[in-house]
Design a protein around this nucleic acid. Structure first.
Lengths: 199, 199
DNA sequence: GCCGTTGTTGACACAGCGCCAACAACCACG
DNA sequence: CGTGGTTGTTGGCGCTGTGTCAACAACGGC
């Protein structure tokens, strides 16, 4: 390990910032917001505590960066627009979602569940943006590229279902991936065919 | 107002505890966990801060009591088991749920969204229990009184959908009650008829 | 080699929490 | 009506964690 309490080293601002951020992502990923002190982050990064504040200002601002990283999903895969009829597209979308979530399950689920503090305005905004992106992906996958506000809201609701269902699978381990898949596919199909026309 | 900084009064332990708790419920309901200090609670209750610790031990323990209160729903209405075919029962259940949520929308939604701190073990447990009760109500309403673990998990997932959809209605105001009702009714019907058999 | 730039440190001040001994309001009892 | 005991209540102490800032030192240019 490179934890060697060696001499003080001087790094480029971007590099140091990146290093501290990655350490913070790891710590906040395994423990909650209140259980991780800026001293913990500093020590784990082999750095003085004041430096954390120098780069990120406030603990909350650091945390905002952390959940932004956690909620950032490999966007490349999102561009794969499946062809075929509606059930086929729904099926492909659900598979894609489950792949993404299971890949970095711990960090993504932890962050999307507000991983430490909800009720805070800024944190809620970052999470809401991530849900918006997921909702956009859903709407695009089922062929509603330019939805109205109501339709978008319904898509966000569906994302809420997807999150809570994924949690039963990945965190509680009481549902299998197949069960989750069928649940999400069936409900999405119903929503598209029966509910979206209300918007 | 009765904020009169009068002489120190001596109250029965239960009464004092109840008074502090109600003040705490109000404060935590309008602001987040970190934004409310025990000093705020004490001052709003016209009491020394030490007394808060005396009755509730820890700020977190106080907060646990608060969200327990917030998540406690008038249980009487839950016993009304609607008769009729499945679509009718589903419809009645959704109406009941929307009534309950809209009645004390702010506190209930605030609490169920982890209203201040998630990731904490104890808080999560209390919220999980509330979701379990809601899931039980759903299963009972659709005529599955004694479900297995998987079925219960699916019901919890549906509660997640109900919560996120209610939030689009009550907090964001972008969906109407009718739209929410149709969305929740249609998806619940699909889940019961097509998905629950997998469990 | 020296010097300026600037990444980095350590300490100071302050807020919030848990704890506890002293205080005083209230209730028996004489 | 006094008086003493019970116990609800207070104020302050120590601790932890955070934000800020002046001083320090590593690195690159001259």
């Amino acid at each position: 390990m490179s934890v060697e309490a060696g001499q003080r080293r001087r790094l480029e601002p971007d590099a140091r910032r990146e290093q501290i951020l990655s350490v913070a992502v790891r710590l906040f990923g395994e423990r909650g917001y209140a259980d991780v002190s800026t001293t913990d982050v500093a020590r784990a990064a082999g750095v003085a505590r004041g430096l954390v504040n120098h780069y990120f200002g406030t603990k909350k601002e650091l945390y905002l960066e952390v959940i932004r990283v956690m909620l950032t999903v490999p966007e490349g895969a999102l561009t794969e627009l499946p062809e075929g009829d509606l059930p086929a597209r729904v099926d492909a979308s659900v598979s894609w979602f489950l792949d993404v979530v299971s890949r970095h399950s711990r960090s993504w689920l932890a962050a999307i569940t507000a991983g430490g503090m909800a009720g805070d305005t800024d944190v809620d905004r970052v999470i809401a943006e991530a849900i918006d992106r997921a909702a956009d992906a859903v709407l695009q996958a089922v062929g509603r590229p330019a939805p109205g506000p109501a339709l978008h809201a319904m898509a966000r609701s569906y994302v809420g279902l997807a999150v809570s269902t994924a949690r039963e699978w990945l965190q509680r381990g009481v549902l299998t991936r197949d069960q989750v898949h069928r649940l999400l596919a069936a409900t999405l199909l119903t929503m598209v065919e029966q509910v979206f026309k209300d918007a």
